[in-house]
Computed example of a mutant assay.
Amino acid sequence: MTADIRRHGMATRYSEAAVFNGMVLLAGMVPERGDTDIRGQTQDVLAQVAQRLQEAGSDKSRILRAEIYLTDIRDIAAMNEVWDAWVVPGSAPPRATVQAALADPAWRIEIVVTAAVV
């Protein structure tokens, strides 16, 4: 018997989340507004991550892996301040942070996470 794949937030090219075999995989979350600094954009993206995880039956304490893309790696200290305040103490997931060009020049950050379903 194969496990069902559930998709959330379907668009033409992608889903915002897929749930399979006890895991939720989120698409890259980007800021809804590009006119804020890295702290504001990070807060925006992390709020979206939390919302998508909740919709998929998980939460931020169950993140198994995070990938963070910054348009300017010099933003890492400010991004880390927001990240550190958001992560559940004792539940910091394995994480990669890299500099990358993003699809919209106004975006300073994109975050991808994989989490266990509750």
Rank of each mutant, 00 (worst) to 15 (best):
Met1Gly: 12
Asp4Gly: 01
Arg7Val: 09
Gly9Lys: 09
Gly9Pro: 01
Ala11Tyr: 14
Arg13His: 10
Glu16Asp: 06
Ala17Arg: 10
Val19Trp: 15
Met23Pro: 00
Met23Leu: 05
Met23Arg: 14
Val24Pro: 01
Leu25Phe: 04
Leu25Trp: 11
Leu25Glu: 05
Leu26Trp: 10
Gly28Phe: 12
Val30Trp: 09
Val30Phe: 15
Val30Cys: 07
Glu32Trp: 14
Arg33Tyr: 09
Gly34Ser: 04
Thr36Val: 05
Ile38Thr: 07
Arg39Thr: 03
Arg39Ile: 00
Gln41Phe: 07
Gln41Arg: 10
Thr42Ser: 14
Thr42His: 12
Gln43Leu: 06
Asp44Leu: 04
Val45Ser: 03
Val45Phe: 03
Ala47Tyr: 04
Gln54His: 13
Gly57Tyr: 08
Ser58Cys: 03
Ser58Ile: 08
Asp59Lys: 14
Arg62Ala: 14
Arg62Asn: 10
Ala66Leu: 04
Ile68Val: 07
Ile73Val: 04
Ile73Cys: 03
Asp75Trp: 15
Ala77Gly: 03
Ala78Gly: 07
Met79Pro: 02
Trp83Arg: 09
Trp86Leu: 10
Val88Leu: 02
Pro89Leu: 06
Ser91Cys: 11
Pro93Glu: 00
Pro94Ala: 13
Arg95Ile: 13
Arg95Thr: 04
Leu102Gly: 01
Ala103Arg: 11
Ala103Leu: 10
Asp104Asn: 14
Pro105Thr: 07
Ala106Asp: 01
Ala106Gln: 04
Trp107Pro: 00
Glu110Leu: 13
Thr114Ser: 08
Thr114Gly: 02
Ala115Ile: 12
Val117Arg: 11
Val118Glu: 14
Val118Met: 11
